[in-house]
């Protein structure tokens, strides 16, 4: 059974999808983070406003790249995830 993902988990899944590729197209993120187009757009806008990712336009294609602040967010998530897991709590 797949439990419903928390918002923090979805955001980190998006960041991880971008981080893994260096720079990623929205369709690639959509596929890797397993999200609908509507939800992905909302989350990408939020991540852009929080400066966790940046938008790049190359040859009429849109890419997203993770920022140092985004990398910090992923690293922080991994640490708090370990703390939650230590107490048997999902995140």
């Amino acid at each position: 059974m797949n439990a419903r993902r928390s918002k923090a988990r979805v955001i980190v899944d998006i960041l991880l999808a971008i981080q893994k590729e260096g720079k990623a197209k929205p369709t690639h993120i959509l596929y890797k983070a397993n999200l609908s187009h509507k939800l992905l757009t909302a989350h990408l806008n939020e991540l852009l406003s929080k400066e966790f990712i940046e938008k790049i336009e190359e040859k009429n294609n849109v890419f997203y790249r993770i920022t140092p602040k985004g990398n910090e967010m992923v690293s922080e998530f991994r640490k708090v995830e370990k703390l939650a897991s230590a107490f048997g709590l999902p995140i």
């Binding site: 928390s6 918002k7 923090a8 922080e76 998530f77 708090v80 703390l83 939650a84 709590l89 995140i91």
Partner: peptide, 10 residues
Amino acid sequence: LYKMSDSKKH
């Protein structure tokens, strides 16, 4: 942890 997750359990 709570700031990131906003979960009641946390």
